[in-house]
Amino acid sequence: MNTPAALAAPSPAPVRGDAKPTVLRTEGLSIRFGGLTALNDVNFEVKRDEIRAIIGPNGAGKSTLFNCLTGVLRPTSGRILFNGENISGLPPNRISQKGIARSYQITNILPNATTLENVRIAAQSRRHGWNMMRHHRNFGDIMGKAEAVLASVGLLSKASELAANLSHGEQRNLEIGIALATEPQLLCLDEPTAGMSAAETHDTMQLVRRISKDLTILIVEHDMKVVMELAHRITVLHYGAILAEGTPADIQQNPKVLEVYLKT
């Protein structure tokens, strides 16, 4: 994750957009459940190394958008381009292999496995997954990767603890660790600070900032303080459509956004 080049480079200034290549682009993305249009003609673009927040009132389609991007839901129409390649309709495992990872709004880990195993199994998904004849602990590359990821999310001291026994905040960070272990280019974080205390929220924000050095991040978040501090750009969803897009400063002054947020 931390390549020497990335460490040497000065910390990136907020990306204004034009210089970096596009990692993710949606074209006319729509999804309908029966009569309900959950996403309606969503067009947006995320540049490399950007932190993009997606906000909107409850039911605006934020999680649905994530589910489309990660293959859990198949869009009714439109395309999703990841590094220029159309990935809409691919199953979740194929999309993961392409380099999109996600963490879940509701903690989604292997509760009866250790913290290390949760991350190790994710690291192993890139190689050796079909090996049947060697003990899983004898793969130095995978174990090294898993331990490095645990260290980066601050859980190395809990490596041999059952994931079910971690605190809520630690489980949320393990979520991020599992996603990181798959070596993604694009990381989708679905409310990473949900249910966290103020101190935990602060730590997780630091964590997100740290891992964002050479990673594109999409983040859905209700905590406006987190959004405004972290995001380079913000996309506002309302009733499944894009209401506004811009820098945190723009969004805070956008009358349409204010109206939506004051009404709900």
């Binding site: 990660t70 859990v72 199953p91 979740p92 495992n93 993961s96 292999q97 990872a101 996600r102 989604n108 880990i109 292997l110 509760p111 009866n112 496995a113 195993e117 190790r120 199994i121 994710a122 192993q124 998904s125 890139r126 997954g129 899983h136 599992i178 996603a179 272990a181 798959t182």
Partner: peptide, 18 residues
């Protein structure tokens, strides 16, 4: 270990690329 991961959480196992 992948089989056990499927037993524990099938959707998550698929989501991490298996």
């Amino acid at each position: 270990m992948v089989l056990q991961s499927i037993r524990e959480n099938e959707a998550r196992t698929r989501a991490i690329g298996y």
